[in-house]
Design a protein around this nucleic acid. Sequence first.
DNA 1: CGCTTGCGCTACATTATTTGTAGCGCTATC
DNA 2: GATAGCGCTACAAATAATGTAGCGCAAGCG
Lengths: 97, 97
Amino acid sequence: MNQKRPAIAEIIELLGKKWVMRIIWELRSGPLTFRELQAACGDISPTTLNSRLKLLKHSLLVENQDSQGYGLSPLGEELLEIYQPLKGWAIKWQKRL
Amino acid sequence: MNQKRPAIAEIIELLGKKWVMRIIWELRSGPLTFRELQAACGDISPTTLNSRLKLLKHSLLVENQDSQGYGLSPLGEELLEIYQPLKGWAIKWQKRL
DNA sequence: CGCTTGCGCTACATTATTTGTAGCGCTATC
DNA sequence: GATAGCGCTACAAATAATGTAGCGCAAGCG
């Protein structure tokens, strides 16, 4: 009852939404509160942040970590791992711009 | 004279724009013409497609491959490589949704 | 030549999404 | 019981994406 579209298309759509990757990235070194996250993202509006958090929780990438705020779920951590190589590549890429 | 922000933040912003990852993904097995790309993306509007192509060319990820249409640049290919593990992960992720 | 076909792409009005600001309701601490 | 900070919502304004029509051009054909 799940997939209408290939999984890769689904995740590409999700990650293509504004702020989604950024939020995951900002949670890389542990949970943050709503307002910390807001500040970390360079003052994303609370409306958008909340909407993205709902989406990310629903997608099982982020979860409430009781009293610590929002943190990455195990799946979220895995996704972040996959993104690691991006860090090195990005520097190289930026130099050529 | 380049970076005001960390490279990773810059690429996250770029890839977070709607359709950007999708376009790169659709070019994975070779260049496509404007209209082929439009169809591959499930009928993205030409306005948006053109705007993204401009952005991607400017970011050196996509380039005009003479008479073949649009294709990934070497940097674009590298980026796509980094995304490979996403494919397997996405399937696992989708099952848990 | 004059006609058609398909291309890359633009114009532009409509619709959807994001932003920014103010502030509510709640809890904890004094 | 007053203050401070939190997560979060309301809502109007700004920005971005969409859909449709079609232009200008180049190639192929009769």
